[in-house]
Simulated assay, not measured.
Amino acid sequence: MSAHANILGTGTALPGPAIDNVTLSQRFGANAQWIDLFVGTKTRHFAVDIETGARTSTLSALAASAASAAMADADVDAGEIDFIVLGTATPDHLMPTSVNLVADALGIDQVPTYQLQSGCAGAIAALDVAMSRLSPESPTGLVIGADVCVKHLRLDRDANSKMSPAELVNYVLFGDGAGAVVVSYDDAGARMRLSHVINRFTGRGRAPGQQIEWFGIADRDSDMMALNEDYKAIEALVPDMAAEVVAELLRTTGWDRDSIDYLMPPQLSGRMTDKIVRQLNVASAKDISVVASTGNNGNALPFLQLDELAGLIGPGERAVLAAIESSKWIKGGFVVEGLS
Rank of each mutant, 00 (worst) to 15 (best):
Q110A: 13
D82I: 08
T113I: 06
T43E: 06
I212T: 15
S326I: 00
S68H: 10
I7Q: 09
D187A: 15
S184L: 00
V336E: 01
R154C: 05
S184G: 09
L62F: 13
F334V: 05
V238E: 09
F334A: 05
T41N: 07
Y231I: 12
A243M: 02
G119V: 07
V22N: 11
V129P: 03
Q33T: 13
V111W: 06
K275I: 14
V181D: 08
V39R: 03
L250R: 10
A126K: 04
T12M: 11
V148R: 10
I84S: 00
L155M: 15
T294Y: 11
G209K: 04
E167C: 07
E248K: 01
L8M: 03
E308Y: 09
T294E: 06
L263P: 13
F38S: 13
A18G: 08
N160I: 03
G295V: 01
Q279N: 06
A69C: 05
A3F: 08
T90G: 10
R278S: 15
E229Y: 14
G9S: 08
A178H: 04
T294L: 07
A300E: 04
E213M: 12
L153I: 01
N6P: 01
M1Y: 09
G316I: 00
A67I: 10
A166Y: 04
A3P: 08
D261E: 01
P136Q: 13
P302G: 04
M264P: 01
L116M: 02
V39G: 06
A67W: 07
T58F: 12
G205Q: 02
S135E: 08
I324H: 06
K328S: 08
A310G: 00
A30S: 12
A190T: 01
I288T: 02
I260E: 01
T12G: 04
T294S: 14
G16H: 04
V85H: 05
S184H: 03
A190M: 00
R133P: 01
P302H: 10
A125E: 06
D156K: 10
F303S: 08
W214L: 07
R55N: 01
V245W: 00
S269T: 15
G107H: 11
N21E: 02
D261A: 01
L339D: 00
A285I: 13
N31R: 12
A322F: 07
A63T: 03
M1N: 13
D256Y: 11
G179F: 11
Q115F: 05
A54T: 14
M272A: 12
F83Y: 13
G295L: 02
V245F: 00
A292T: 07
T253H: 03
L116H: 06
R206S: 05
E229H: 12
V291H: 10
L168A: 14
A121F: 05
I124D: 03
D307S: 13
K162A: 11
T41G: 03
P96T: 08
V277H: 08
L339S: 01
G311F: 09
I276L: 11
W34C: 02
A188T: 15
S327D: 06
K42D: 09
T10Q: 05
E248N: 09
D287V: 15
S293G: 12
R200L: 05
R204G: 10
N170S: 14
S98Y: 10
A226R: 14
P315Q: 11
H45Q: 03
V148T: 15
